[in-house]
Computed example of a mutant assay.
Amino acid sequence: MQASHIDHVNLNVPADGKQPAREFYEQKLGFTIEDDLYEAGEKPFFDVRLSATGVVHLWPTDDFEPQAAVNYDHLCIVVEEDIETVKSQLTEAGVDIEKELDSPLGATGVAGAVYVRDPFGYRVELKSRV
């Protein structure tokens, strides 16, 4: 078996989480929210479109509880911009940078990265392309 990329990640969010997701992922980070099928009742989740080949499925649930255990650390999203541009865009959007690393090792090598929290408490690593 030989994998080429991650297709999607599933994350639970509060039942009323669509608007906070839109504000963070779309308005602040610049990704697209795809929710037509969710709104039409054809699927139980909506998507954050990261690229042509990758999405984050956000599953609204009445049973959502913010992350309390350490069994999940973060989701890493590779971005095309250099890390200084990413930091500038985050600051301009009012997103707090939790942590910055100059050279974290990832699937494709070492590149600068910053860590932020989404509105649901998930840590998101934004990593420059190697």
Results as ranks from 00 to 15, higher is better:
residue 68 A to T: 14
residue 79 V to S: 00
residue 79 V to K: 04
residue 84 E to S: 13
residue 115 Y to H: 08
residue 27 Q to C: 03
residue 99 K to R: 08
residue 65 E to H: 15
residue 12 N to V: 03
residue 59 W to C: 09
residue 35 D to K: 13
residue 40 A to W: 10
residue 61 T to W: 06
residue 66 P to K: 15
residue 42 E to S: 11
residue 99 K to T: 14
residue 38 Y to I: 00
residue 19 Q to L: 06
residue 45 F to Y: 14
residue 67 Q to P: 02
residue 77 I to N: 04
residue 12 N to Y: 13
residue 77 I to F: 06
residue 38 Y to A: 03
residue 33 I to L: 02
residue 53 T to N: 14
residue 98 E to I: 13
residue 48 V to Q: 05
residue 10 N to K: 15
residue 96 D to Y: 11
residue 31 F to D: 05
residue 102 D to H: 13
residue 101 L to Y: 11
residue 61 T to N: 02
residue 50 L to R: 10
residue 114 V to L: 01
residue 77 I to Q: 07
residue 87 K to V: 04
residue 24 F to D: 00
residue 94 G to L: 03
residue 106 G to L: 05
residue 97 I to N: 04
residue 60 P to M: 11
residue 103 S to G: 06
residue 15 A to E: 14
residue 40 A to G: 05
residue 116 V to S: 03
residue 51 S to C: 04
residue 59 W to L: 05
residue 90 L to A: 02
residue 19 Q to W: 07
residue 19 Q to T: 13
residue 113 A to I: 07
residue 87 K to G: 00
residue 97 I to D: 01
residue 113 A to F: 01
residue 41 G to Y: 08
residue 67 Q to C: 03
residue 60 P to Q: 07
residue 114 V to G: 01
residue 116 V to C: 00
residue 113 A to S: 15
residue 48 V to D: 04
residue 115 Y to L: 00
residue 96 D to C: 09
residue 50 L to I: 12
residue 55 V to G: 00
residue 88 S to I: 00
residue 19 Q to S: 03
residue 39 E to T: 15
residue 18 K to Q: 08
residue 36 D to I: 06
residue 106 G to P: 09
residue 65 E to Y: 01
residue 68 A to F: 11
residue 9 V to S: 09
residue 69 A to E: 12
residue 68 A to E: 10
residue 101 L to D: 13
residue 79 V to P: 00
residue 9 V to L: 05
residue 85 T to V: 08
residue 30 G to E: 07
residue 20 P to W: 06
residue 53 T to H: 15
residue 91 T to D: 03
residue 48 V to I: 08
residue 66 P to M: 04
residue 85 T to K: 09
residue 31 F to H: 09
residue 71 N to S: 09
residue 90 L to F: 01
residue 111 A to T: 06
residue 70 V to G: 07
residue 47 D to W: 13
residue 31 F to T: 04
residue 116 V to E: 02
residue 23 E to F: 03
residue 12 N to Q: 14
residue 59 W to K: 09
residue 35 D to F: 06
residue 97 I to A: 02
residue 83 I to R: 14
residue 45 F to M: 07
residue 93 A to Y: 08
residue 65 E to D: 11
residue 20 P to A: 04
residue 26 E to M: 07
residue 88 S to L: 03
residue 33 I to H: 04
residue 98 E to T: 12
residue 9 V to A: 09
residue 93 A to D: 04
residue 85 T to S: 10
residue 101 L to E: 11
residue 33 I to F: 01
residue 38 Y to H: 09
residue 102 D to E: 13
residue 60 P to L: 05
residue 106 G to F: 05
residue 77 I to W: 09
residue 63 D to N: 13
residue 82 D to T: 11
residue 41 G to I: 01
residue 11 L to M: 03
residue 15 A to R: 15
residue 20 P to Q: 04
residue 29 L to M: 02
